[in-house]
Design a protein around this nucleic acid. Structure first.
Lengths: 116, 116
DNA sequence: CCGTATCCTTCTTGATACTG
DNA sequence: CAGTATCAAGAAGGATACGG
């Protein structure tokens, strides 16, 4: 580890991806390409419209997500990952993989304790 | 991106490293090896004892940090990264680097706007 | 269809004082 | 030295209703 802790920039990255539904929103968009608002909403049933809007706006303001409004009635809005946003993919994948291993590790520990 | 968003485990990883002072605590321990409580406190002047204790306890409960108490008066307690905790290093470095690029990117955008 | 606005609850953090 | 305990403030998230 040769990062000077005083210059820690981990938080700048965390600021982007932390939020109750942000990782899953990003994974959906990375997985599916362009998605309409309602499509995202259906894909994440427990999220409220308010939180979906809020998180998408935050991601948009950081240039991670692109929002395209089609001037129609009824409205149509499509979201997608920007090219810049793609640079987060590696990190998300790494975190998902670490998280998967961590979860199964915890389950193993738990089952060991239960068998004692 | 071939992660099924329904099986997203990014949050399991985020749970570990999210917390106002957790990344910097981890970087200090990864950088310096074993550190005493007071040493950590001095290295992160703005943190309160309460938050330092809380974060360390959480990291310890996830087996990321090891806590060793020396039965002395006055007390001496040393913290270090576990071998398992080392598996987080890659991700933290990746996030720090992404965060650094992101920060300078934002600065560039800002100075462009200022010059208009 | 794609949002806003309002109110409310819960979680996180901080300030401060105290202790073996 | 290395913590706990208590109280308070702020931020994040949720429920619900309404609007172009």
């Amino acid at each position: 580890m040769n990062i000077d802790p005083k210059l820690c920039q981990v938080d700048s990255a965390l600021d982007i991806i932390v939020g109750k539904w942000k990782p899953i929103i990003l994974l959906h968009l990375m997985h599916n390409g362009r998605m309409r608002f309602s499509e995202l909403k259906r894909s994440i049933p427990e999220i409220t419209q308010k939180m979906l809007t809020k998180h998408l706006r935050e991601l948009e303001s950081e240039d991670i997500v692109k929002r395209v409004v089609y001037p129609q009635v009824p409205p149509k809005v499509e979201y997608s990952i920007t090219e810049y946003g793609r640079s987060l993919e590696e990190i998300l994948v790494a975190m998902h993989e670490w998280g998967s291993r961590h979860t199964s590790r915890k389950k193993q520990k738990l089952s060991k304790e239960m068998s004692v």
